[in-house]
Design a protein around this nucleic acid. Structure first.
Lengths: 209, 190
DNA sequence: GCTTTAAAAAGTAAACT
DNA sequence: AGTTTACTTTGTAAAGC
């Protein structure tokens, strides 16, 4: 009897310790990424639900916390790339991505709920690049037309937004280099060039020389 | 009725497990396998490649094998028989015919139509689509058990099926779902 | 869970020219 | 700016850590 009681105490002790560790890790990530409080709270809620459903089994607490942060950002439309989260997490991007897909499947986080409009990324990247409202609107128009013409399926949203901002910058005479847009979007210059090439060709854009 | 007349499937890879029902001394086996690799510290089996038929074999001391890379079941049988002839030269005894089980067949294919994967992900239940991580929609079919990767070009990859018939059934089920959610006839309405 | 093996899809990354 | 090679995803068995 006493033994059983003690083991239950031990189990809840471990569970509490794990939760405390998880929440401190969440705090660390949230403050470094300067996430709004509601995003951090949503990530904590997702984590508790994941624990309740036994989704942590076989995964590290850190990868699940990072995955919950990414999921909360997507759910609440607060753009953050997986790379930004992976940079400050101890686990790599691949592992966080796996945990993210696993919790998304099991917490019914459908693609619809997780969908973030390219527009939201436009504003985030444009903020970091110091681009005007005019350039942002032009970039969104380019992205909308690209979507209508079926040029976006399967492509990295970050890469598309980076190229759209690069083009919009050229068209509105607020040029940013490929290197600059690639850096804020966390994609390579080659990806910016590839998307740029396709958008300019298929949307018949005239780039001023 | 689902129209499968424009759908194509092609075998790309077959994985089979084999039991030779004989214990093997791997130290002796490596000496007769030309292009082979054996590092028990990193992997317990011998990794051996045949050029004809073109397959890769994993050979274990229990006498069990894994044959991968084959394009037909016949290739697997030929590879197993070829290995048995080689093993006989180093004194291995075979009292009965090997047991071959097909474990996985991978197909590449084409549905013959382009897709707006955002639209597919929004309406098709139980699918995954994370273009930042992988360009295709991942769709799992329960019965027959298989997974289909669907790309915007309409090209597909079907893996996990245990027969060509199962792969076709899995693709048929995906098409039924796509049709059910109005994702098939689209062509202009992106 | 991991280790190793095979092959395709289409996108992106890393390393070069 | 563009090429080559390599890696992302899916599934599967083997023996052992």
């Amino acid at each position: 009897r006493l033994r059983k009681w003690q083991s239950r105490l031990r189990v809840s002790d471990a569970a509490e310790r794990n939760l405390a560790f998880a929440l401190s890790e969440l705090d660390r990530i949230a403050s470094q990424l300067k996430l709004p409080r509601h995003v951090e709270e949503e990530a904590a809620r997702l984590y508790r639900e994941a624990v309740r459903k036994g989704l942590i089994r076989g995964r590290s607490i850190e990868s699940v916390i990072a995955a919950c942060v990414y999921a909360a950002c997507r759910l609440l439309k607060v753009p953050r790339t997986l790379d930004e989260i992976a940079d400050i997490s101890r686990v790599d991007k691949k592992e966080i991505g796996r945990s993210f897909r696993f919790i998304a499947r099991n917490l019914n986080l459908t693609p619809k709920k997780l969908f973030v409009k390219p527009t939201d990324y436009v504003n985030k990247f444009a903020d970091e690049l110091g681009l005007s409202e005019k350039v942002r609107r032009r970039a969104v128009a380019i992205l909308d037309e690209a979507y209508e013409k079926g040029l976006t399926s399967g492509k990295s949203p970050a890469g598309l937004v980076a190229a759209a901002l690069y083009i919009a910058g050229l068209l509105e005479d607020e040029k940013r280099t490929q290197r600059e847009v690639a850096e804020v979007a966390r994609v390579t210059e080659v990806t910016v060039r590839n998307r740029y090439k396709e958008l300019v060709e298929k949307l018949n854009l005239k780039i001023p020389v | 009725m689902v129209d499968m007349s424009n759908v194509k499937l092609r075998i790309e890879n077959i994985v089979a497990s084999v039991d030779l029902f004989t214990q093997l001394n791997l130290e002796k086996v490596i000496e007769i396998c030309p292009n082979s690799k054996y590092n028990p510290e990193e992997f317990p089996g011998i990794i051996c490649r045949f050029e004809e038929p073109k397959v890769a074999l994993l050979i274990f001391s229990s006498g069990k094998l894994v044959v991968t890379g084959a394009k037909s079941v016949e290739d697997i049988e030929r590879a197993v028989n070829k290995l048995i002839q080689m093993l006989k030269k180093i004194g291995a005894k075979f009292g009965r015919a090997p047991q071959i089980d097909i474990q996985n067949m991978v197909f590449s294919g084409d549905i013959g139509m382009e897709f707006n994967l955002d639209a597919v992900a929004l309406s098709l239940p139980n699918c995954e689509y994370e273009p930042e991580q992988f360009p295709g929609v991942i769709y799992r079919v329960k019965e027959p058990r298989a997974v289909i990767l669907l790309f915007s070009s309409g090209k597909i990859v079907c893996s996990g099926a245990k027969s060509e018939h199962d792969a076709w059934e899995a693709v048929r089920k995906l098409l039924r779902e796509l049709e059910k959610y109005g994702l098939i006839e689209e062509e202009e309405e992106w």
